[in-house]
């Protein structure tokens, strides 16, 4: 009980953390029943021009230190993905059995794996695979999801029913199970993994886009666009999608992180990248037997996955805060 009491009403915590809280409180208008301060309303950014939206977004993102750090980290990962294979100290697919399962040392920073391959080089080289799969899978899910969601939301009627029922069915199966089933049908391989992971996350995007379209379809300016005689497709792409953009961007950023996790999971199960291509999940799956004998083989690839996923999650959270003023009050 006494622990709860510490937060009681007239207690005053340190000032540094206070200030932010205060601003939030005022934004919500709860602290002062008679509205002590003119509330600075974060008005709907709906009708603003995209230029402003980008600028606004960048400004709020810049204010979020965690998101900024993660953005830098993500950019660094992209650089590693691009130049990684050229800067690895060893050939990431060169085996040297005499040197297998060596712990980290000056020559091999992260040690060597069961085949004597340099783990550091493989972790660096694996960045490209994870990022590529993440980005491609999300692109597939995003484009398909946007198109399906837009059609469903815009057309309505039986088209909507059919599309959304199929989405419901896909959501009724855990995504990793669906992805594995897809992999079984498509066969092993990284390209198949991209497709499988992309397909299973279509419903999320379709739902978001459909929901957004339904909520703004009735808006006056859409009706106005109709009156002016713009084609439906043009209306969708010029007017409806930009409005759903912020939600989609946030979702897609978080989607990259789950795509990377799924890739690693498929790799771990031996379904993704085929050896000797370096991939983090696959490295973990193959080194599993050496868990007590050579823990370092399992440590670094896992850290790489976690750090990458964490960075995209942080970035996604930061973007959400930056793009959705209402989320900021949380």
């Amino acid at each position: 009980m006494s622990e709860w009491n510490q937060s009681s009403v007239n207690e005053v915590p340190s000032r540094g953390s206070e200030s932010q809280k205060a601003d939030e409180t005022f934004a919500m208008g709860i602290a002062l029943p008679d509205g002590q301060i003119p509330v600075y309303d974060h008005d709907e950014t709906f009708h603003e021009k995209p230029e402003n939206q980008w600028l606004e977004m960048w400004r709020s993102l810049r204010a979020n230190r965690a998101a900024l750090v993660s953005l830098v980290f993500v950019l660094a990962l992209v650089v590693i993905a691009v130049i990684g294979p050229y800067i690895t100290p060893y050939n990431p697919i060169e085996t040297e059995m005499s040197n297998a399962l060596k712990p980290p040392s000056a020559e091999h920073w992260f040690g060597t794996d069961q085949l004597g391959m340099d783990i550091f080089s493989r972790v660096i080289a694996g960045t490209r695979v994870s990022l590529t799969v993440g980005l491609l899978a999300v692109s597939i899910a995003l484009t398909t999801g946007i198109v399906l969601g837009a059609i469903a939301g815009y057309a309505g009627g039986w088209v909507d029913t059919v599309i959304m029922r199929v989405m419901d069915m896909m959501l009724a199966i855990p995504s990793i199970l669906l992805a594995i089933t897809l992999m079984a049908a498509l066969g092993k391989g990284i390209d198949k993994a991209v497709i499988a992971i992309g397909l299973v996350s279509i419903p999320e995007y379709a739902r978001i886009v459909r929901g957004n379209i339904l909520s703004i379809k009735e808006n006056d300016y859409i009706a106005a666009a109709h009156v002016v005689g713009l084609s439906d497709a043009r209306i969708i792409f010029r007017h409806v999608l930009p409005n759903a953009l912020s939600v989609i961007i946030v979702r897609a950023t978080l989607g990259i992180s789950s795509a990377i996790l799924d890739t690693a999971a498929l790799g771990f199960l031996g379904l993704g990248v085929q050896p000797p291509q370096p991939e983090w999940g696959d490295m973990l799956g193959r080194a599993r037997g050496f868990i007590f004998q050579a823990p370092h083989t399992l440590l670094y690839p896992g850290m790489a996955i976690t750090a990458t996923v964490l960075a995209f999650n942080l970035l996604g959270d930061g973007l959400r805060d930056a793009l959705d003023p209402r989320a900021r009050i949380k």
Binding site: L261, A264, A265, L284, G302, I305, T306, V309, L310, N313
Partner: peptide, 12 residues
């Protein structure tokens, strides 16, 4: 960290 760590690696 909980949402970012792969289940199988955490298990390991």
């Amino acid at each position: 960290v909980g949402v970012s760590i792969p289940i199988f690696w955490l298990g390991i």
